[in-house]
Computed example of a mutant assay.
Amino acid sequence: MNKKNLKTRCAFIAGLLGCVAMPAHAEDSNKEETPKGKAIITIFSDIHSGFGHVNDDRGFNLDRAYLGYQYDLSKELQLKVVADFGQSKSVDDHQRIGFVKNAQISWKREKWTLHAGLISTTQFKFQESFWGKRYVMKSFQDEYKFGSSADLAVSAAYDFNDYVSADVILANGEGYKKLQVKDGLQYGAGVTLMPVKNLFIRLYGSYNEASEESGKGITNLASFIGYKHKSFSLAAEYNYQKNASYTDGQDQSGVSAYATVNLSKKVGVFGRWDYLTSKNKWNEENDGMAGLVGAEFRLGKYIKLSPNFRIWSPKAGSMPNSYYAYLNASFSL
């Protein structure tokens, strides 16, 4: 490892220690607070069926199971550990692989929020929260592999006022499924604006250093605008990635638009449209448009059901459209 990378690594470790040290000081000033904890249990599953040439793609599926525990040492200091059990291309489809997704310490005080450890990344967390239907379909950047939802990292966010907040993150860059530490790091920064009530604008950019000399660093840029009302929400986002998979010239981009209408406290309808394209057709077999329409039924506090219909229209003209019917379910404690 050269001197430049050694200095970068030392700075990364110093940042982690700094984030741990500041919460520790905050804890001393709140000794009288009673610690409390809660279990984290979230399960995503579905039954689905394709039609026409994908008629054989049918059956039950356990998409995700999150199991963990959150412990609040004080109003400012929090510890959280979450295990993620999901599908993996490296094993048979009926098997599941377990990973530690979160193992973090968090500190919140006044306008500051700090996270350190194996944490949720900031690349598309805001968009995923606004979309609000991760159990039905991942948000655009997560669905099309523009980045990882968690990583070994340290992040900081600051609320300047009711209208502007900003955040930065320094991450390992490998994602939570590959925690080996190589020479490359990922640097990211974002700003969130709320110019008027219920209207949100989010801008984000990151650079992921290549860990191999032959590779090229990955640049991600994202923009988002959304309006959320108690009765409905509307949103659109544009995403751009340069040098996907650390390969020079493998650029891709895409847009996603989605809307939700709440018919009552227990029933809502929603729709979403995605478009993914790659430069010079390097990823043509995965380029195309996706459409989704459905309804959501909230059965009490913990259970959600969503019957929905989907279409995938490949950009490659030689491939036919694919149609699916799904019934997605979410249990969250």
Rank of each mutant, 00 (worst) to 15 (best):
N5V: 07
N5E: 10
A14H: 08
L16K: 06
L17I: 06
G18V: 11
V20M: 12
S29Q: 13
K31M: 14
K31S: 14
E32H: 13
K36I: 06
G37E: 05
I41E: 13
S45P: 10
F51T: 01
V54R: 11
L62D: 11
Q70S: 15
L79A: 07
D84Y: 05
D84M: 06
D84N: 07
F85P: 04
G86M: 09
Q87F: 08
Q87L: 05
Q87K: 10
K89I: 11
V91P: 09
D92I: 02
R96F: 14
I97M: 11
K101T: 00
W107N: 12
K108Y: 01
W112F: 15
T113I: 08
A116P: 03
G117S: 04
L118N: 04
L118G: 06
Q123A: 09
F124W: 06
E128R: 05
E128I: 03
W131T: 00
R134M: 03
M137L: 12
Y144P: 15
K145F: 13
G147V: 00
A153H: 04
A153V: 02
A156I: 11
A157W: 08
A157E: 14
A157H: 09
D159F: 08
Y163W: 13
V164S: 05
V164Y: 07
L170T: 03
L170S: 03
A171T: 05
E174D: 09
G184Y: 05
Q186H: 10
Y187Q: 08
Y187V: 07
V191S: 03
N198F: 10
S206T: 03
Y207K: 12
N208D: 11
E213W: 03
K216L: 02
L221A: 06
A222T: 10
G226V: 05
Y227R: 04
K230D: 14
S231L: 07
S231W: 04
S231G: 06
F232A: 06
L234A: 09
A236L: 09
A236F: 06
Y240I: 01
Y240V: 00
Q241C: 11
A244L: 08
S245C: 07
D248G: 09
S253V: 01
G254D: 01
S256W: 00
S256T: 00
N262E: 05
L263N: 07
V267K: 03
Y275G: 04
K279A: 09
K281Y: 15
E284V: 15
N286V: 12
G288S: 12
G291W: 10
R298Q: 12
Y302G: 13
I303A: 08
S306N: 00
S313G: 08
G317Y: 11
M319L: 14
Y323A: 07
A325L: 14
S332Y: 03
